[in-house]
Amino acid sequence: MSDRLPPLTALRAFEAAARHLSFAKAADELNVTPAALSFQIKSLEEHLGAPVFRRLNRAVELTEAGRTLSPGTSEGFARLTTAWRNTQRISDNTTLTVTAGPAFTAKWLAPRLYEFAQAHPEIDLRLTAGLRIMDFDRDEVDLAIRFGYGPDDGLHSTPLAREWVTPVMTPELAQKYDTPAKLANAPLIHDDSINFLHNPCDWPAWFRAIKIAADTSHGPRFSQADHAIDAALAGAGIVLARVTLAHKDILSGRLVAPFKTAISTTAQFRFLCPLGNETRPNIAAFRDWVLKQADPIKTVGRNRQLIAAADIPPPQ
């Protein structure tokens, strides 16, 4: 028996018919007549030397040979489709598909989209908010912005800014809680989205860093950082906020970060794309723009006392 593959058109006809279990629906999908599709199936069966479908009155079902062939053809055409789309994206410098976490999208990207559009009217930006582990081929995205440690093996990775957390609140609450000691009795907002960090950057760690005993078990908890910051903007309490997400509100005066003590972490937002793709004009333009947008974070960090999370003593 020859290992030579049958014509691609015959395999394509089989894959569609096996998926639909209908010659008519497969023909409609492939934009051919049922007679033409039936001819391709017959050609494949002659090439194989065995039937792949059992023809019934008004339906078809796979034979044992058809059931064996079906998964491989489905996977093969799916991989071909993905490869083709990825190849198209490489030569397309007019669109850019970006994925980032919901908080980064809400607090960083969305408020600045107009600025990017003004600077790069030739690029059509498409955003997808999500946190799952990236597969650039499967997910059909050009670049990702993710928070964490890495490693980012096989990817081009550029950190956006040094990350640290500090108490953030409205100017009105800052007048009432004007010393670190008073925060022990303040309404605390908890951002649980960074509970995965190896060294905690939470309220208990911050109070240990300033050597003040406090009960931090109270207060609302949020699984998304942007929701925790929005609660602080509404005056609901004081949040231990990541500077990358809160700096725009701090610089505008909507929120204030009155205390010098901050906890730094080696986790950070990184700009990620497949290795080698960082030189593509649209990806390079977005990377340069994002890095420029991160520059104001340095202003917020002036005169801060940054304590590494790893250097904070564990709870007794």
Rank of each mutant, 00 (worst) to 15 (best):
T279Q: 09
A267M: 10
F269R: 06
N277E: 09
A308Q: 14
T244N: 08
L251S: 00
P274H: 06
I250C: 06
F259T: 03
T299E: 14
Q293D: 11
N277F: 06
G301F: 09
A257W: 00
L255F: 02
I283Q: 01
A294L: 05
A309P: 05
A246W: 05
D295E: 15
A294N: 03
C273F: 09
R254S: 11
I263N: 01
K292T: 15
Q268W: 00
R287N: 14
H247M: 08
R287E: 15
F286Q: 09
R280P: 01
I312H: 09
A284D: 09
I307G: 06
L255Y: 05
V300Y: 05
L251E: 07
A294E: 04
A294Q: 08
I307W: 01
R304G: 14
T299K: 15
R302L: 14
I312E: 02
T244K: 00
I250H: 05
A246T: 05
S252W: 00
I283L: 07
T261G: 08
T265S: 14
D249S: 13
A267V: 02
A284W: 03
P281G: 08
L251W: 13
A257P: 02
V290N: 05
T244D: 06
T279F: 13
R304T: 11
T261L: 13
I312Y: 08
G301D: 09
Q293L: 15
G253W: 05
R302A: 12
Q305C: 13
P258K: 00
K248N: 09
S252V: 07
A257C: 04
L306M: 13
P296W: 11
P296S: 05
K248Y: 03
T265Y: 06
A310I: 14
L306A: 09
T279N: 07
A310F: 00
N277K: 10
G276R: 00
S252R: 12
V243C: 10
V290G: 00
E278I: 08
K248R: 13
A285D: 04
A309T: 00
N303I: 07
W289D: 01
F259Q: 08
Q305G: 12
L255Q: 00
F259V: 05
P258F: 08
I312R: 02
Q268L: 02
R280E: 02
Q305Y: 10
I307D: 12
R254M: 06
P274D: 05
F269Q: 11
G301S: 12
T279G: 04
A294H: 11
R287S: 13
L306P: 11
A246Q: 05
T244W: 02
V256R: 10
N282W: 09
I307L: 14
A294R: 00
P281S: 04
V300N: 00
E278T: 09
T266A: 13
G276V: 01
Q305T: 15
D288Q: 14
K248F: 08
P296H: 09
R287G: 01
K248T: 13
A309Y: 02
F286P: 11
Q305F: 13
A310C: 07
A284V: 03
I312A: 08
G253E: 02
D249W: 04
K260A: 15
F271A: 06
G301Q: 09
I250V: 15
T266W: 07
F286N: 08
V290F: 07
A246S: 15
L272D: 04
N277S: 11
G301L: 12
L272A: 10
V290M: 15
I297R: 06
A309K: 11
F286D: 04
K298E: 15
H247V: 03
N282R: 12
E278M: 03
D249Y: 14
L291I: 10
L251G: 03
T261D: 14
